[in-house]
């Protein structure tokens, strides 16, 4: 089975790599401006005066827009999970190559769990617009807002280090 896939995909290795890179860039960077230059300053302003109605509304707007904006990232990630294994098969890469083993471990143990949580918070049970539209209590909305903010606070130092490290691994192949 693997041999058949390799036979058909190997001639298109460069094209698959191109698609993989485009979606990697989309996944990596699509929410960065929104996070760094909208969410962080707006949330910090709100934290200075958490009961101020204008800041609460601005915070809610920023986070609901961020939930929507995460669509780009969350379309890109499954594409990476498709093209990544295709590249592995087409290129004959395996954990024999140290850089590849490390990348695989980081994807499975770090990226996928973070993305599962991110999908939930942005599009499913944690989506703030849906909570509001469902007529749930203000407390439920507030709880979802705090949970998402805490998730972003914790996940940002993780991805800021691990994503560039994975890019370094695949480009330099240091071990």
């Amino acid at each position: 089975m693997i041999d058949v896939i390799q036979q058909y995909t190997a001639p298109y290795y460069a094209q698959i790599k191109f698609v993989h890179l485009v979606f990697m860039a989309m996944w990596f960077m699509s929410t960065s401006v929104a996070y760094r230059f909208y969410l962080v300053p707006i949330f910090r302003e709100w934290m200075k005066s958490p009961g101020d109605i204008d800041r609460i509304r601005l915070r809610n707007w920023a986070m609901e827009r961020f939930d929507d904006g995460a669509r780009l990232e969350h379309v890109a990630f499954p594409m990476l999970l498709i093209t990544g294994p295709l590249l592995m098969i087409a290129g004959g890469w395996s954990p024999v190559h140290g850089w590849f083993a490390m990348k695989l471990v980081i994807v499975v143990l770090i990226f996928i769990p973070i993305e599962v949580m991110d999908y939930y918070l942005a599009h499913f049970g944690g989506n703030k617009e849906k909570i509001r539209a469902a007529g749930q209590s203000g407390e439920a909305y507030e709880e979802a807002m705090h949970t998402h903010w805490w998730f972003l606070i914790v996940s940002s130092p993780i991805v800021v280090l691990t994503i560039p490290y994975v890019i370094y691994l695949v480009v330099v192949k240091p071990f």
């Binding site: 949330f43 709100w46 934290m47 958490p50 009961g51 101020d52 109605i53 204008d54 609460i56 509304r57 601005l58 915070r59 809610n60 707007w61 609901e64 703030k128 617009e129 509001r132 209590s137 203000g138 407390e139 909305y141 507030e142 705090h146 903010w149 805490w150």
Partner: peptide, 20 residues
């Protein structure tokens, strides 16, 4: 700030973000 694009806020439900 009153614009339909901006979601409403609930000042009664709002609470400070505190982490120990």
């Amino acid at each position: 700030m009153e614009h339909p694009l901006i979601p409403p806020g609930d000042a009664r439900a709002a609470r400070p973000f505190e982490v120990s």
